[in-house]
Design a binder for these strands. Structure first.
Lengths: 306, 306
DNA sequence: CGAGAATCGGTAAACGTTGTCAGGCGGACC
DNA sequence: GGTCCGCCTGACAACGTTTACCGATTCTCG
C-alpha cells in the first residue's frame, strides 16, 4: 500500500507544499547565517561548513550578511526575527553582541555562536582560543629572533582583534620583550586599509623587522607595501598572517599563518543547532565545544637579517 | 486607526507568520542561487550582487552550491524544485544545462540565467560576450609582441572556457599567429590544478613568453610556478588572468585581467527575476541584457624580453 | 436633517498539510 | 463460527493568515 502511494506520487511528480508543512509543524526548515563582510574565503568556508551539515536537504541555508553590526545590533535582530528562521548561526562580530542575544532569546529564536569572545556561557558556542593562537604566532616570530615587531590590528569591533592582541602581549612578556605602541596600527581586516596602514608602519622612523597581521588579507597587503618600498620578504621583513585563508596559500611567498578550522567550526555550530531544533534534550548537547588552532609556518617568515 | 493597529503590533512585537502568508499567497519569498564551486571571490560577488537587489527584506536568498552539475543535472533540478523557491538564479555551468531548464519549465519554476553560452533565447538571460573578452586579452598580449603564448583552460564543462578560447583564436588569426596546441593545457579554475598544469606548461620544450589563464586563480598559480622555476614576472613571462577577482588585485605583480561585472550581473538577474515574480508583464521585461567586459592592464604583462 | 460615502466589526472560506478518531473490513487464531 | 487485532478509509479539526462579504455605524456634505 505504502509502495503504491509512493509510486503514484512519483508519477504525478507531487511534492508536498513546504509552506503548509511549515505552518503546521511550526517551523520553516530555514537556518540563517549572518556575518559581516570579512574576506571572501572566510565567508565561503563558513557557508560551506554549514552547508555540509545541512546537505540532507531538510534544512535550507539563508545568507544574511549585515554591515556595521556593532553600531546597530537591534536592526540585525529585527532582520533575523523577520526572516522566519528556525535558528541562526552567528559569525563574528554578531556572535558577540549581548543586545542581539537578548533579542533572540526574548523571541525564542535559537542561535549558535561562532568564536565569540565574551559571555561564553550563553547559547551554543563554538570556541577557539584566539589568545592562544595569537600567542603561538607571536612566539614564532620572537623565537626567530625578531625584537622590533609591527602589529596590524583588525577591526576593533571584532572581539578576535582584542583576543589575538592579548596573546601577542603574553608572548612578548614571556620573551621579555617590550611592545612598542608606535608599532601598532589599526586596520579593518580588508586589503585596502591594510595596505595603507602597512605603508605608514613601514615608512616610520623605527622600521620593524617583522609584522604580525591579524588576518591574511592584511598580511598580503603588507607584503605588497614592503615590495613597493624595495623590501624583500622574508629577507628584509617577515610577515605573518592569520586564518589560513586561500590567499595565504596563493600569496608569494606563501604566508606563515594560523589555521582556524572555520569550515569545521561552522559545521559544528550547524550540527548542534539542528540537534536542538530536532528536539534533542538540551542537557545532552555540549553547550560549548572548543576547536584548536594550528600554527602553519611557511615561507614568509625567517630570522631577521644580521 | 491604522496607526493604532501598527502601534499595538509593535508593542506586542507581533510578526505575521510567514508560513501562513506563503500558504495563502502561494509563494515563499525565497530566491535560490545555485553555482558550482568556483573561486570564493566569484561566489561572494555573485551573492552580494543578488543580495543588493533583495535588500528590502521581502525576499530571502537561499544558497545552493552544487558540485558536478554537468554530470547530474536532474539531481540539481530535484534539489531546486524541492527547495520551495519562488525563483532561482542559475550561475554557470548550471545556466547552460538544457535538461535542467526543461525540468524547471515543466514545473513552472521561474529562473534567470547568468552568462549562459547556448540557447540564449530561453528564460531571462544576463549575457556577457565571453568571446569578445577573450579576444581583448589575447589581443593585448599579441600587441605587446608575444608570439609563443601558453593557454590554461578552465573546466571544459563551463561554456565560458569554450567561449574565451574562441575569442583567443580569433585574435590569433587576426594577428596572423598560429596557435600551438602543445601550449594549451586544461585546468579546472582552481589554484591547485592550475599550478600543476602551469608547471607542465613552463617545463615543456618550447617555453612560452606569455600565458593566458582563464581565471585569476589559475593565473596566480602560474605566477607561483614561474617564480619557483626562477622566472620573473613580467620580465621573463607575462601572465594574464580573467575575472578581476580579489586575488588579481592582491597578487604580486597585480594581474592584467578582464573585468566581468559579476555583482552587477547578479543584481540584474535578481532584478528581472523579481520583477517577473511580482507579476510584471513578461513582455515589458527585456528577455536578455548584455553586460560589457573591460580589459584591465596591470603589471603582470609586458613586452617579451629581447 | 437626510442621502451617500467611508469606515468598522464580525463571519466565513480558503491555502495544503498533519494528526486524531471512529468505523469498516479482512485475516488469524482458538 | 466467534473474537480480537491490524490495516485501511473517511471525516474533521487545526495551523495563521488573506480575501470577500454583510450589516452596522460614523462621517461628510448639500
Amino acid at each position: 500500500m505504502r509502495q503504491k502511494v509512493k509510486e503514484a506520487a512519483e508519477a504525478l511528480d507531487y511534492h508536498p507544499n513546504l509552506a503548509a508543512q511549515s505552518l503546521i509543524a511550526r517551523r520553516s526548515f530555514l537556518i540563517g547565517l549572518t556575518y559581516e563582510r570579512p574576506s571572501p574565503s572566510y565567508v565561503v568556508e563558513l557557508q560551506n561548513g554549514a552547508l555540509s551539515r545541512l546537505d540532507d536537504g531538510r534544512y535550507r541555508l539563508v545568507v544574511l550578511p549585515f554591515a556595521h553590526v556593532a553600531s546597530r545590533p537591534e536592526e540585525l535582530g529585527k532582520l533575523l526575527l523577520r526572516a522566519g528562521l528556525d535558528g541562526v548561526l552567528l559569525a563574528p562580530p554578531a556572535s558577540d553582541q549581548p543586545l542581539l542575544l537578548d533579542m533572540l532569546e526574548r523571541q525564542r529564536l535559537p542561535y549558535a555562536r561562532i568564536t565569540p569572545h565574551s559571555d561564553l556561557d550563553r547559547g551554543l558556542v563554538v570556541a577557539m582560543d584566539e589568545s592562544a593562537a595569537g600567542h603561538a604566532v607571536a612566539q614564532h616570530l620572537l623565537a626567530l629572533g625578531h625584537r622590533r615587531i609591527g602589529i596590524i590590528l583588525g577591526d576593533p569591533s571584532h572581539a578576535a582583534s582584542i583576543g589575538r592582541l592579548e596573546g601577542y602581549r603574553r608572548a612578548f612578556a614571556e620573551a621579555g620583550v617590550a611592545i612598542d605602541d608606535d608599532l601598532i596600527v589599526t586596520g579593518d581586516f580588508t586589503y585596502a586599509v591594510g595596505y595603507e596602514v602597512a605603508r605608514t608602519l613601514l615608512a616610520g622612523a623605527k622600521r620593524p623587522t617583522a609584522v604580525l597581521a591579524q588576518n591574511d588579507d592584511m598580511a598580503v597587503a603588507a607584503i605588497a607595501a614592503a615590495r613597493e618600498m624595495g623590501l624583500s620578504v622574508p629577507h628584509d621583513l617577515s610577515v605573518a598572517g592569520f586564518d589560513n585563508s586561500e590567499v595565504s596559500r596563493t600569496a608569494w611567498p606563501p604566508l606563515t599563518t594560523v589555521n582556524q578550522p572555520v569550515a569545521q567550526m561552522a559545521w559544528d555550530a550547524a550540527d548542534r543547532l539542528i540537534a536542538m531544533l530536532d528536539g534533542k534534550a538540551v542537557s545532552d548537547l555540549p553547550q560549548r565545544r572548543d576547536h584548536a588552532h594550528e600554527l602553519l609556518v611557511r615561507a614568509s617568515t625567517a630570522a631577521p637579517a644580521a
